[in-house]
Structure formats: C-alpha cells, structure tokens
C-alpha cells in the first residue's frame, strides 16, 4: 500500500474507532443501565464464540445466499421491465401508478399473505426479497433509461447502424450504469428486508438469529447479528463499487 492509500484507509477507519469509543463512553457514563449495553469487547467475544461453537458462518451463509438470490432474481426481471417502461412512454404511463403502488407497500406488511400463499419455507423468504429488490430496481432502471438522450442513437443512425446494432452498441452500453445502480439500490433494500423475511420461521440466518436472541434477551447476540448484517452489506457494496469503477472508467464523475 502506498502513502495515499494508507491515509485513505486510516481516514476510513477513524469513524469506526470513534463509534467504538462512543459505545464505551455511553456504557460508562451511567445514563443507561449497563446490563442493556454489552461492551464492544463482550460482543467481540460473543462473535468468536458464535463463530466457533454455534456455526455463525452457517447463518451468514444462509442470509447472504437469500439476499444474493433475491437480488439476482429481482434485478433479472427488473432490468427488462424497467427498460421497457423507460423506453416506451406509453408503457410507462400505463404501469407507473401500479408500480408506485406496490413499491410503497413495506414488504413486512406482506408477510402474512406470503405465508398464506407460499408457506414458511425458503420460497417465502425469497419471494419477499424478490419483491423488495424488484420494485427498488425497476424504478432506478426506468428513471435511468428514460433519461438516455436520443443524440447518440441519432449519431449511430447517421453512421448506418441498424436497429440491432443500435441496441447492441449504443443502448446496452448506456444502460449498464443504470443496471449497476439498480443492483446497488436493490442490495441495500434487500439487506434491510432480510430480517423481515427471516421472521417467517427461519431456522438459520442472521435475521433468525436476531429474532431468536430477542426471545431470550441475549443482547450480545443481537449486537453480533446486527454488526454482521452491516458488515456484509458493506462488503458487498464495496465489491459492487469496484466492479462499477472497472466497468465505467469512461464515466465523467465529479469525485474520482
């Protein structure tokens, strides 16, 4: 790592150290009952205990897999649908109110219905995550696609491009940034929805772990679960950002 890299890393680390210090400070200030706030080192100890004895990795894997599948399926459908809505104005006028209606519904409110129709298995959780990813992704896609300027298509036409060439060589490259943004937004929403989806009688998963811990008032486990969700979401976002930077070197960004 070079000097600038080290400094950026340090700068990124600083707020975390600050947060931990604040955590200790709140605990020792006496304003809050100490038994309600496990100390950071206790949470860390719990983390290793869960990791080695209780199979925390299995929970992490179960949750990550659900989010991954839900987002992948959601975006797979959101990309063509969002594209059509963005591209054809009539389709948009037609579907816009509908999409906004469903998007406004919090996925958690749908859980009882999902249980009725899809049972309490893996499928039910997937449906919830799919729902959340699809509706957040489709909006990003169609907002983005509808803002593609016709200039580039006109240029391609005057150079002799046919419909297929325009689609392949102009529209796809212009759509990629919006697909990536949709993915990022959907990932965020999906992690947020995960706990809700795992409320449906899940045995494993970070949401289930938090859920079970709350029944027995195991605050340290709850903390471990929350921090794990945050960390994994953060790592996924970082990876996606790296991919985005690689794919979109051509983009003119205000911040490098």
């Amino acid at each position: 790592m070079n000097g600038a890299g080290l400094r950026r890393f340090g700068l990124g680390l600083l707020p975390w150290i600050g947060a931990i210090l604040l955590w200790y400070a709140v605990r020792w200030s006496g304003f809050v009952n100490v038994s309600l706030i496990p100390a950071p080192h206790q949470v860390a100890a719990k983390f290793f205990e869960l990791l080695t004895k209780e199979g925390l990795l299995i929970d992490i894997f179960a949750s990550t897999r659900r989010v991954f599948l839900g987002v992948a399926l959601g975006i797979l459908v959101a990309v063509p649908v969002g594209f059509l809505l963005g591209w054809y104005r009539p389709a948009r006028t037609f579907a816009d109110p509908m999409i906004n209606f469903f998007r406004a519904l919090p996925p958690i409110a749908l859980i009882p219905l999902v249980i009725v129709y899809f049972g309490v298995d893996e499928l039910a959780k997937l449906v919830i995550l799919f729902y959340a990813s699809f509706f957040s992704g489709v909006i990003v896609m169609y907002e983005g696609v509808s803002q593609i300027t016709p200039l580039y298509i006109r240029v391609a036409q005057t150079l002799g491009a046919n419909q297929a060439e325009i689609f392949r060589k102009v529209i796809i490259p212009l759509t990629v940034p919006h697909i990536l943004t949709a993915l990022r937004v959907a990932l965020g929403v999906a992690w947020a929805t995960l706990v809700a989806s795992e409320l449906i009688a899940a045995q494993r998963g970070l949401g289930a772990m938090i859920q079970n811990a709350s029944t027995y008032f195991l605050l340290d486990v709850i903390y471990v679960g929350i921090i794990c969700i945050g960390l994994i979401a953060l790592i996924m976002d970082l990876i996606l950002r790296k991919i985005t930077a690689r794919l979109l070197v051509w983009q003119d960004r205000a911040i490098a």
Binding site: Y152, R154, T158, L159, G160, P173, W250
Partner: peptide, 20 residues
C-alpha cells in the same frame, strides 16, 4: 424517410460516444 449512412451528419453537440 429517415437517417442513413449516405448522409453523414456532424452534430452541433458532437455526440461523441463517451463509453468508447
């Protein structure tokens, strides 16, 4: 009837493809 390659156009806004 529409645009075609026998009529080359240089647009006022250039329209260079930013992704290429």
């Amino acid at each position: 009837a529409g645009p075609g390659p026998e009529r080359g156009v240089i647009f006022q806004e250039y329209g260079v493809f930013p992704w290429l």
